[in-house]
Simulated assay, not measured.
Amino acid sequence: MPLLEAKHLGIAFGGLRALEDVNFQLEENQIMGLIGPNGAGKTTVFNLLTQVYQPTEGTIELEGKSIIGKKTYDVTRGGIARTFQNIRLFKDISVLDNVRIAMNYQMKYSALAGILRLPSYWKEERAMTERAMDLLSVFNLQDLAESKARNLPYGQQRKLEIARALAASPKVLLLDEPAAGMNPTETHELMESIQLIRDRFSISILLIEHDMSFVMGICQRLVVLDYGRIIAEGSAEEIRTNPKVIAAYLGGE
């Protein structure tokens, strides 16, 4: 059974059909890329997977169970976390607190323990901080834990956003253009980090990206969208030589 599966997924906004008959499967511990020209519907797929949008047709299943109709926060708690095209950090709080804040719903101490600062409160707070620092160390951000998020360079802000998504303990991580705006060195480091978190945390990753060298170098499988429909699916080599994909990106019959 696939970890995440979309079946005949579609959505229309008024008379505009943005996605139609989208089918794909994400397996456990797999890195899969969702690519296509601008406006192909890639971010719309992410918004459906996280239930920001409700599909007008089709289903989405996580571990064999439908997530259609759930609230976005319930989808996150159920195991799907994401990042965004535009970085959405809490820029006026610390790097550490940006990660810690994503763990709040996992805390088990009572409101009374929090108000009175009982031992159970301090125990869980210490554990949360240790885990947040562990996640920051994956991206070499641990020495910047007390810095404000806004003071980080762009590439490090991108990494912080991924670390915060990981703090929700997802089974599936959705990365929306994670390498956007990065220089070649940062992009290479990000590729290594994504492979590390897949292996270390045993999670599956679905990513949108326009940097083809990044996609071809990291993804085990690719799905190609054009005008809201899947036009190709396969390995990096199969996609690289697919005539429909070449036409979609470069124009032609």
Rank of each mutant, 00 (worst) to 15 (best):
M1R: 14
M1I: 11
L3F: 08
L3M: 15
L4Q: 08
L4V: 08
A6M: 13
H8W: 08
G10R: 11
G10D: 12
A12P: 03
G15W: 13
R17A: 09
E20Q: 14
N23R: 07
L26W: 05
E27T: 03
E28A: 12
E28G: 02
E28P: 01
N29D: 12
I31D: 05
I31N: 06
M32C: 03
M32D: 06
G33K: 06
G33C: 09
G36M: 06
K42G: 03
K42S: 04
K42Y: 06
N47E: 09
N47I: 03
L48R: 07
Q51K: 10
Q51C: 10
Q51R: 15
V52Y: 14
Y53P: 01
P55Y: 11
T59Y: 07
I60F: 09
E61R: 13
L62I: 07
E63D: 15
E63V: 03
G64A: 05
I67Y: 04
K70G: 05
K70L: 15
T76K: 10
T83C: 00
F84L: 02
F84D: 06
S94G: 02
V95C: 00
V95G: 00
L96T: 03
L96K: 04
D97C: 02
N98H: 01
R100D: 01
Q106R: 14
A111C: 01
I115S: 05
P119M: 09
Y121N: 12
W122I: 04
E124N: 02
R126E: 15
R126F: 10
T129K: 15
T129F: 08
E130V: 05
R131H: 15
A132K: 08
L136A: 01
V138F: 14
N140V: 06
N140T: 12
Q142S: 13
E146I: 02
K148M: 14
K148N: 13
G155I: 11
Q157G: 07
Q157W: 06
K159A: 13
E161I: 02
I162D: 08
I162E: 10
I162M: 09
S169N: 15
L173I: 06
L173F: 08
L175P: 01
E177I: 02
A180Y: 11
P184W: 12
E192V: 10
L196P: 00
D199G: 04
R200P: 02
R200F: 04
S202K: 15
I203T: 07
L207N: 05
E209D: 13
M212N: 04
S213E: 15
F214L: 11
V215H: 09
V215E: 09
C219V: 13
Q220N: 12
L222W: 11
A232Q: 07
E233S: 13
I239E: 07
N242V: 04
I246P: 00
A248D: 09
Y249P: 00
G251Q: 11
